[in-house]
Amino acid sequence: MTQLARLAGAPERPQPREAVASRRPRVAARTLWFAVAVVLALGAALASVALGTRVMGPGEVLDGLGGVLAGDQAGGVAQAAVEKRIPRTLLAVLVGAALGAAGAVMQGITRNPLAEPWILGVTPGASLAVVTGIAFFGLASPASYIWVAIAGAAGAAVFVYAVGSLGRGGATPLKLALAGAASSAAFTSLISAILLPRIDVMNQFRFWQIGGVGGADYARIGQVLPFLLVGVVLCLACARGLNSMALGDDVAAGLGQNVVLIRTLAGLGAVILCGAATAVAGPIGFVGLVVPHLCRLLVGIDHRWLLPASMVLGAALLTAADVVGRVVARPSEVDVGIVTAFIGAPVFIWIVRRTKLRAL
């Protein structure tokens, strides 16, 4: 019985005590690495509160947090800095977790090591939908951005998968990667074509196009949080089904899994996460590519561990990238989308050379 078959829920023969005992170190190692990821995420969050144009020491951070929690209306500079940075940190954590989980799910349902919201055109599709709505339909409500972005992400995902499925062999990793890259380029060009003649729209969203969490506030977080929760629940509910699909659609169906339903629900969850994250933070790439591959090295291929680990490590990566962007260009800042692209591009090249576009 292979590891994938066990993860997919296939019936097992009774195992000797030695085999059962040998699994305990694996569970302990996964738990340890997951705990390390949580610590990294917490450390990145604390750094995000402490670092910026004004660097604060631990004492100032604690004083500022105390003032915020106490509702002190006459707080000092430290409290004002903390109060401004907390929503930014929370948004970075939520968006990073959403993109990490979405990338892991997309790689699972396509069995494509290069599947990622940006590379498959899902994030640019959401961006195109938002910009189109603003330029031609007068969208102004942040809540409407989320719905439009989710619709654009869903349309882009269906389009790329349909194009990648044409011809002999169906949706192979190579065809999906090529279709996604071509679609991303086309969507990005259309965004530029819409924005260039409209100076007012371009000035309003030129920083949003790059991707960042600098304009975070509690109202935006409250608007996007229900969508992110729905997306996460859908993805986690399909974890065992994704394990079965790793064996192939025929084997998964033989194990009693409804392959079409699993692929639809998991894909819907990933699309909701991508669309909502893009609407609130702009198009941010490569988080969904880098994080799942790293998590597979740490916790293995079981999606019941992989998805939560991708969420935690995605939150840590995006928050840390936001901190780096604030520190390297102080007193100005580099948008987090640029930092993640700088990190993710070499990883993308490494994955291509290592996998040679084989399926997972």
Score class of each variant (00 low, 15 high):
residue 287 V to Q: 04
residue 106 M to I: 00
residue 214 G to D: 14
residue 122 V to C: 01
residue 243 N to G: 00
residue 170 G to W: 13
residue 36 V to Y: 00
residue 246 A to V: 06
residue 217 D to F: 11
residue 302 D to N: 04
residue 84 K to D: 06
residue 218 Y to K: 02
residue 353 R to P: 07
residue 326 R to P: 02
residue 46 L to I: 14
residue 35 A to V: 04
residue 97 A to E: 03
residue 171 A to Y: 11
residue 164 G to Q: 15
residue 149 A to Q: 09
residue 316 A to D: 13
residue 133 G to C: 02
residue 149 A to Y: 08
residue 309 A to W: 03
residue 178 L to H: 12
residue 101 A to T: 13
residue 131 V to S: 13
residue 324 V to E: 05
residue 79 Q to K: 01
residue 51 L to F: 13
residue 7 L to S: 11
residue 181 A to H: 05
residue 236 L to V: 11
residue 110 T to E: 15
residue 4 L to Q: 14
residue 320 A to I: 06
residue 129 A to T: 00
residue 339 V to Q: 08
residue 257 Q to P: 05
residue 269 G to T: 03
residue 190 L to N: 01
residue 25 P to M: 14
residue 70 A to I: 04
residue 288 G to C: 04
residue 119 I to E: 00
residue 278 T to Y: 08
residue 280 V to T: 13
residue 220 R to Y: 04
residue 58 P to K: 08
residue 296 R to N: 11
residue 163 V to T: 02
residue 312 V to A: 06
residue 234 L to P: 05
residue 294 L to Y: 00
residue 219 A to R: 15
residue 314 G to D: 14
residue 335 D to R: 15
residue 106 M to C: 09
residue 96 G to S: 12
residue 194 I to S: 10
residue 73 Q to L: 12
residue 325 G to M: 05
residue 157 A to D: 01
residue 53 T to L: 12
residue 181 A to L: 15
residue 220 R to W: 04
residue 74 A to G: 14
residue 208 W to F: 13
residue 66 G to I: 03
residue 124 P to C: 05
residue 260 V to M: 15
residue 71 G to T: 02
residue 98 A to I: 03
residue 33 W to M: 06
residue 86 I to S: 08
residue 124 P to L: 10
residue 168 R to A: 13
residue 268 L to R: 00
residue 326 R to H: 02
residue 344 G to Y: 00
residue 254 G to H: 14
residue 345 A to S: 13
residue 163 V to Q: 03
residue 218 Y to C: 08
residue 231 G to K: 01
residue 23 R to K: 10
residue 138 G to Y: 05
residue 68 V to N: 12
residue 309 A to S: 08
residue 255 L to G: 07
residue 52 G to T: 08
residue 360 L to Y: 09
residue 169 G to A: 08
residue 51 L to A: 07
residue 31 T to R: 13
residue 289 L to Q: 06
residue 23 R to C: 00
residue 320 A to V: 00
residue 87 P to M: 04
residue 131 V to T: 11
residue 101 A to Y: 08
residue 265 L to T: 03
residue 271 V to S: 07
residue 33 W to I: 09
residue 204 Q to E: 13
residue 291 V to R: 01
residue 260 V to K: 14
residue 63 D to Y: 03
residue 112 N to I: 11
residue 31 T to F: 02
residue 110 T to K: 15
residue 310 S to N: 13
residue 275 G to D: 10
residue 55 V to P: 04
residue 156 A to D: 09
residue 94 L to F: 12
residue 297 L to I: 01
residue 159 F to N: 05
residue 260 V to W: 08
residue 289 L to K: 02
residue 239 A to P: 14
residue 133 G to P: 07
residue 130 V to M: 11
residue 308 P to Q: 12
residue 236 L to D: 00
residue 267 G to M: 06
residue 42 L to N: 08
residue 188 T to R: 09
residue 328 V to E: 07
residue 92 A to Y: 05
residue 13 R to F: 07
residue 276 A to Q: 05
residue 315 A to L: 10
residue 310 S to R: 07
residue 79 Q to E: 15
residue 264 T to Y: 13
residue 291 V to L: 10
residue 93 V to Q: 14
residue 134 I to D: 11
residue 236 L to M: 10
residue 248 G to N: 09
residue 198 R to N: 15
residue 136 F to H: 15
residue 121 G to F: 02
